[in-house]
Every structure is written in C-alpha cells, then in structure tokens.
Design a protein around this nucleic acid. Structure first.
Lengths: 266, 266
DNA sequence: CTCCGTTATATTGTCCGACAATTATGTGCG
DNA sequence: CGCACATAATTGTCGGACAATATAACGGAG
C-alpha cells in the first residue's frame, strides 16, 4: 500500500483531506474557479516569491510532494509546469525540481505579481514597481496623446467621473482609478505597453491602499488625473508626458510619506 | 479499442510516429533539452502567435489532439497548462480549450516572444517593441548612471570591446551587443527592468539581423554605444538618458530604412 | 407560448500504477 | 590520474478509469 488516499483518519492527522466534504478554511479552496493544479501552483508560487522556499532549494520529489498534499502526481506535475512556465522553478531528471534564481522569475506575469502582492509587499520591490511606472506611463501618455480615439477619451472620461463620484475610499472608485490608467495604456495602441497594465494596476492599487489605511484625508488625486486627460484629449504629447510624470511622482510621494510616518511616528 | 497507439501503419499515414527511432526532420526534436510537453507547447504556441489558430477558436479535445500527435493525454495536458500559464489559451470543462484573445497573451514572456520571432516578425509588433525600447532604455540608462557599480562598468566595457572586435557581422559581436544592453539594465538595479532584458534583446537582435542581411555596410553603432557608456561611467543621468534615446532612435531608423528599401527597391 | 427547473452529455479534471528516459554519481579499468 | 561504464534516483511518459463541471436539450408549469 504505497499511496494512501481518501482514508478519513490515516497517518496524517493535522492534514485535512482536500476533497473531504467539509473543507471550509482550507487554503486551497479560495479561488473557486481554480482547479486543483491551479491551486497548488498558486500556493507553492506564493511560498516561493515570499521567500519561504529559497532560490536554489530543491523541492521534494514528485511522489513525496504529491503524497503529502494528498493529490495525484499528475495534478502536482501540472502545477510544476505552470510554475516552470512562469520561471519560478526548473525541473531536470535525476536532479529534481529546484527554485529558480529571482532574476529568472517572470515578475511581470500577472499571476506572479498577484502572488507577490498577496502579502505586504517588499519595500524595495514596490519602489522598483513605481520606478517602472515612472518610466512607462509618461511615455505611454505621450503615445496616447498622438493616437487616442474618441472611444479611448470616453473611457478615460467615464473613469474620471467614477473616481470623482466614489472617491478612493470606495471600491468602485479604486476600480475607476485603475480603469483610467488601463484606458490610457490602451490608447497608446502598443501591445507591449498594454501587457504592463497588470503591473501598473498593482502599483496603483497599493498606492491607494497605503493612503487610505494610514492617511485617509490625503491629497486629492483628481487634479493630476484631469491634467493628463486634458493633455491627451488635446493631442499634446509633451504635456501628457509631463502631466503623467507629475502624477506618478505625487503618487509615489504619497506611499513613501506613509512608509516614513509608519517607521518614525506610529 | 478506443485509443490506438504505436501501430506503424494506422489510419494516420502522413503523421510519422514521434518516438520512432529515426526522427530526423521532425519539428519536435529541435531543442534537445525540451521534453515532450515542452515541444508540444512550443509547436502549438508558435501556431497560435503566428495566427494559424485564431483567437476564440476551439482546439481539438484532449483525447483527439493527443491521439493525433501520438502522445499521451497527460503530456498534452501539461503542454496546455504551459500555454495557459502564458495566457495563450483558456480551458474550461465541457466547453474545451480555446485560444485566448491577443490582449491576454503575455507578450513579454521570453518564450512567447521567442515564438513570435520564430518567423519574420509582424511589422507593427516589431515597431511596437522598438517603442517599448525607446521608453524603457533611456529611463533605465538614467537609473544606471546613478547606481552602476564598477562591476557593471566592467561588464559594459567588455561588451563594447567585443562589439568592436567582432563587429555585428559575427555572432560573437551580436552577442556582445546584447550583453551591453543587458548589463545596462542590470546596472539600473530594478528587478522589473531586468525582466525586460529578453524583450530588449529581441529587438536588438532583429535590428542587426535586418541591417546585416540587407545593408551590411551600414552605420557604425560603436559611437552611440560609447556615448551611453561614458555617460553612465560619469554618473550623469541626463546625459545617459539622452545618449540612449539617440541610440535607440538610430537603431530604429536602420530597420525602417531597410524595410522601406525592401518595399520600394528590391 | 414562454419561462424555468431538470436531465442529458460532452469535455476537462483527477486519480492510479507502471515503465521509460535522463543524468549525477560512483566504480573500475587502462 | 583520467576516462569509459555501470548504478541509481528522479523526472518524464504512458494508458485507462472515473469524477466534476458547465453547456445544451428537454419537459413541465404558468
């Protein structure tokens, strides 16, 4: 009897059977749409990007790991393929599956990014992400000013209305904020810039999270956003570039101010 | 007998057995390090990004597809997981696996990018990639000017030596070119910018490919590169930004000039 | 006739057990 | 001392069964 399955009270008392009929708080049932392999990939991915598994570290063998998780080896292997496809692990026969060096991680992959920001983000990584925004978004705004269609302007305008109506204290307002930046990247009409929407969105959302949590009465973001919109509407690339850079700088200052206050004051 | 396997002369006469002992020109044996699932993912990925399979199109069922390819269903499924992880396909029970809309593709994923550029690249996508370079690299150069260590300078210097020694007509020279840009992104000390190395590298390599193929006596790229290097060495962000933008602009002009010549002249 | 719940069904999802392929490591021979 | 070779450990592939899921067809109630 090499592999036990579905026995209610077997040798692993603290590990509830994943497929038991009452798995309420089990970590692997959060995303209902995620299949088993997806859940495993997500859980393991989070452990990797959070540093719980160190780069270069050798993971357990497939039989041992799948056995410990009470899943079939096939499902576990599919999870490995997902993680390998995102650059988090590398598998080789006879040697095993090891965690890749962080340089090889696909940090801009939407899943990897969401796994990273599942918990309080690393400070340096967050500032790196803002640096990226500061480089990407002004350039994208300039392109958007040249290429935007009326449809894009309308999307951006609606997003601005939503931001003004709900404010960043409301989920709808935060969504509108992200939609504004997403619409702007779409207006740049560049497929590669559009794929960066997830990254920009993550940075945007963490800005507002920090602000709302520690400093709810902070600066009104509407003027900056409107300036960007006006410049794009006026088809003025230079002005759009400048306005967007100003916006990102102010947003970054918001988060760093909050961070500083958390360290010194509290 | 629902599934036939390994019968030499069955109902699929034109499909040679993948695991036969003499698979010389078979498309699936190119990358020796790629496993079966990796080869399938690569082949199918290329078919998708090249438009052979249209977005929204429903792929064959797993049993039918794996049967047609003469591989096990498990291997085929692992390939699907890889493609799904890169945003190329989406699977749902009862409905099947369909090709995702291009907006969802992870274009900056190294594999996806290499699959795209497996064949002559789409003109618009290539220009989009240059737009990205034009936005990313100047900003990265500015950061690199502030943060570069001596080790980075040495890497860049060695890369410049290699470019001068071998020229872009030689493989070693092209490699040195990529190493220069890679080292500069590393010097920016930003994890997200570093992940864009692949994308920049693809654009760089296609520049030189076009130039060498259609216009071997073109402009010498060394002066532009040296200017960037000097500015980074001097810790002058503004100068580095300017020099790098100039470099990218000239490189982009090279490719467009070649394209134009190909269309008009020839 | 329309709407809604139910059932049928096709497809992916998961499981299991066996064997093949690959390669790091040790071993023996020259 | 170095190189060919055997060994072993791990991933890779296979095949066949059953479960879960979501679309679509169906039928009954209003």
């Amino acid at each position: 009897m090499p592999r036990k399955k579905k026995s209610s009270n077997d040798s692993a008392p603290a590990a509830p059977s994943i497929r038991s009929s009452l798995p309420k708080s089990n970590a692997r049932v959060r995303r209902r749409s995620l299949r088993l392999h997806g859940s495993i990939a997500r859980d393991l991915g989070i452990l990797i990007v959070s540093g719980r598994y160190k780069p270069g570290e050798l993971l357990n063998g497939e039989i041992a790991a799948s056995d410990r998780l009470h899943v079939s080896r096939g499902a576990y292997r599919e999870a490995m393929r997902i993680l390998a496809a995102k650059g988090l692990v590398e598998s080789r026969p006879k040697v095993g599956t090891k965690v890749s060096q962080p340089e090889r991680w696909h940090l801009l992959d939407p899943d990897v990014l969401s796994w990273i920001f599942e918990f309080e983000p690393d400070e340096k990584l967050l500032s790196n992400l803002f640096e990226l925004r500061r480089i990407i978004e002004p350039g994208a705004a300039a392109l958007a000013a040249e290429r935007r269609t009326n449809a894009h302007l309308e999307m951006m305008s609606r997003a601005l209305d939503g931001m003004a109506k709900y404010t960043l204290a409301d989920e709808a307002g935060r969504l509108a904020d992200q939609e504004f930046h997403s619409a702007l990247l779409s207006a740049s009409d560049n497929a590669f810039l559009m794929t960066l929407t997830t990254g920009v969105g993550a940075a945007v959302s963490w800005t507002t999270i920090f602000k709302q949590r520690d400093n709810p009465l902070a600066r009104d973001p509407m003027p900056d956003h409107r300036k960007v919109y006006e410049a794009v509407k006026a088809s003025d690339p230079a002005a759009a570039h400048k306005a967007m850079m100003n916006l990102v700088d102010l947003a970054f200052l918001d988060t760093t101010n909050v961070s500083k206050r958390k360290k010194t004051g509290k």
